[in-house]
Design a binder for these strands. Structure first.
Lengths: 240, 240
DNA sequence: CGTCATATTGACTTTAGTCAATAGAAGTGG
DNA sequence: CCACTTCTATTGACTAAAGTCAATATGACG
């Protein structure tokens, strides 16, 4: 219970970037009923096409939003980490246009749609905060689109590593500019829209350039933050 | 005035895909104060980085959401057509992470943020409908991400043409499966994340395969809808 | 120790980008 | 209407980026 409380605090801190919340609103969030499920790598949390009746809050681990195409391709649309509401949009859309998959072992709190809707009705500021979260989500997606379309594989790789550094640091998970994604280069490949072999080459290039250091399971240490940002053309404003 | 009313009806019809609206809510939307501006191709409607105080409703023409990167690249993140709220997210985010640009002559109604906020406060169902619209927007963005990452240039081209056919048809702008984008292959290139020369080659391939027919300014006629959908791996569910 | 997944490397292919030239179209001013 | 400019589309030749395939290495784990 303690750990969940901590994560919900992170969520609250994140939501408060947009709207200050009253104590009552915070308490309502903290005490909202939810169920916690555990997943291991490759587990499907929500399948593409499902019509979920709960919203997923990531407590621990890394979750990928994955889309399977008619041609067999798999595209990872984003990474969700502790404190992220992974599928808030499922409140509004009829069916999931993509799935949620555990890329590393993950603990997920599931809050019934009905609960979220009640919260939004009773506390308009919470509703605004959730809307802000969806909008932020859109901004991250757009940055990824820009990466896929108009950044080289090298820049794109550096860019996502920068983004994850900032996001993980914001929830205290990248002490000393180090973090471990517990996932594979294949996952990165599906996120970048390139091949796993090419991801490998780009990671090596980043190492060769003295920007990062990494061990298996994508445990990495940023050696030169400014250098990595420069290589990526990283401008953090979109993360708000 | 007549034309605006028609477009607002389209917007209402679109919003009602998610939430049925009362007559009062519809009237509130219809009578919301707004200013109409006209733009010609290449005009900047909202610049990247701006902090707009109004929401843009496209009445006529085609608007692109464009993002300029540090490396000089330009990525088009989406096309907005009549009846689309082009920057609803600006209600929530601090600064625009991208700009809005007229890709063809466009008429835009601008509704003050304050007005939209009032509408949302007074009519919770309108608030839900707007949230749904933002969520739908996210779904379209995700489909584009999948196209950029895991579809070939040929499939991607076919896919966007399918999407535009469905969206334009929904607002009565693709009679007889024909529509004219009034933009250039360069714009498509920036939307797809490929070069203009390659867009040209893909369009020619689609013509060669008997799927489309096209004239200058991207006036096109879909000759074989099913063939185009098959080529694209198009599954329209994401459009709602 | 053996098995499986992942990472790394090299050789080769494919896709897409770049550059440059040409051809069409559309708009402008006289 | 014409001459002129400019933008856009098309084409071909060549280059560069990324993909594919296959072999090998490394590492985690039962």
């Amino acid at each position: 219970m303690k750990k969940e409380a901590t994560v919900i605090e992170r969520l609250i801190r994140k939501l408060e970037h947009h709207e200050l919340l009253s104590d009552e609103e915070k308490r309502a969030l903290e005490t909202a009923p939810s169920r916690v499920d555990n997943y291991k790598r490759h587990d499907v949390i929500i399948a593409q096409g499902d019509r979920p009746s709960e919203v997923c809050l990531v407590l621990e681990g890394v979750v990928g939003r994955t889309k399977i195409l008619a041609n067999g391709g798999r595209q990872i649309l984003g990474f969700e980490i502790a404190g992220d509401l992974a599928d808030l949009h499922s409140l509004f859309l009829k069916g999931m246009d993509h799935g949620l998959e555990a890329l590393a072992s993950a603990r997920i709190a599931k809050v019934p749609h009905k609960t979220v809707r009640n919260l939004m009705e009773r506390y308009p500021r919470l509703a605004l905060a959730f809307a802000w979260d969806m909008a932020l989500d859109g901004a991250i997606q757009r940055e990824w689109m820009a990466s896929m379309g108009r950044r080289s594989a090298y820049e794109q790789t550096a860019h996502v590593l920068c983004e994850l550094l900032i996001r993980l640091r914001a929830v205290g998970l990248a002490p000393d500019n180090q973090y471990d994604l517990h996932m594979t280069q294949e996952d990165l490949a599906d996120a970048f829209g390139i091949s796993a072999v090419h991801v490998n080459r780009m990671l090596q290039a980043l190492r060769r350039d003295g920007l990062i250091e990494l061990k298996a399971s994508l445990a990495l240490k940023i050696l030169d933050i400014q250098g990595l940002k420069d290589a990526a053309g990283f401008e953090p404003a979109y993360l708000q």
